[in-house]
Design a protein around this nucleic acid. Sequence first.
DNA 1: GTCTATAGAAAGATAGAC
DNA 2: GTCTATCTTTCTATAGAC
Lengths: 195, 195
Amino acid sequence: MARKTGSHSEITGPRIREAAVRLFARHGYAAVSMRQIAAAVGVQAGALYLYTPDKQTLLFDLMRAHMEDLLRAWQAEPMRRAPLHRLEDFCRFHIRYHLDRTDGTFISYMELRNLEPKNFEMIGALRRDYEAALETILRDGVAEGRFTLPDTKLSTMALIAMLTGVNTWFRESGRLSRERVEQIYWDMVRRSVGA
Amino acid sequence: MARKTGSHSEITGPRIREAAVRLFARHGYAAVSMRQIAAAVGVQAGALYLYTPDKQTLLFDLMRAHMEDLLRAWQAEPMRRAPLHRLEDFCRFHIRYHLDRTDGTFISYMELRNLEPKNFEMIGALRRDYEAALETILRDGVAEGRFTLPDTKLSTMALIAMLTGVNTWFRESGRLSRERVEQIYWDMVRRSVGA
DNA sequence: GTCTATAGAAAGATAGAC
DNA sequence: GTCTATCTTTCTATAGAC
């Protein structure tokens, strides 16, 4: 398996994506240059174009990967039957997953406006799929008389905003443990739906 | 009141700020050039520098104005005594105010990372002042035995995130009226604090 | 697969005429 | 107060050597 000197295709690709996620999250897509990403990886700017046709595609691929991973991870969770249990699972899953991917989450919320229209629409569709997962739980709960919600669509948006907000303030070294944070958010969510 | 041809200081300043708010909200600070702002106002790029020393200061001034207006507007609201009433007033005020200033709100949340450290700290302090207004209400409510919240700081962040999220989906032409949206959010908030 | 070098466009900011 | 013109830097993306 001899390989030419300086040939690192299997590791450079992932490293470019990791560096781009971190830098885009920290400074914003428009504020980060291809040179900065290359420098973080340890290659020259031109080498990036072996892995992405352009900067816009790099952003889009990162956002799509984030959303697809999120959907896959939720679908892989064991699914309990009762709406109240499913709502609890969703809350805890959402908090855990997003705290584990702060940079990817940040980009997926902040950089939508930097996507070209076609790419914007594709990411929007993935996001709506995820929101639909929560709304289905809420609708089932209302149908079974467990939740009291006059508008499940509004409540879906309200709850996702509340839960995702954990990323703006939570620090691993802070006062509250993850488990405690999960528990308190879940208590608020449970009460907010009238359960 | 004769005035030299092409002299419009009283109106150009505000128009620059309005155009900058709109463009920064739409495309992001880093993605908007001074030339674009100038074009939106109908002047040449160089003329902008009569009104701001540089682009960073323009962003900072917009964000500071947004936060100071927000704080002033809340302080100008009549203050009822009971924590439950004050919480309702805060919720309705927050939703109304932010729906009236979608662009300014967007910038104040999204462009923090584009502020230089000193400016970042100043905007952060204003934001913490606003959060403290809500947390005081929650603490008073807990102290009087009206609310059940194990951590008022966490709940403050959770509620503000939930309420501000209205900006991401609400459309004036949509299914729900502002009054209806206010009411449903308030119902969820009321129940979430255990009142 | 990565490098150096660079083409070509666009950015922030300033100088001086009017 | 605004414009034209421009300085200087930086950007994305590509070409060709190794």
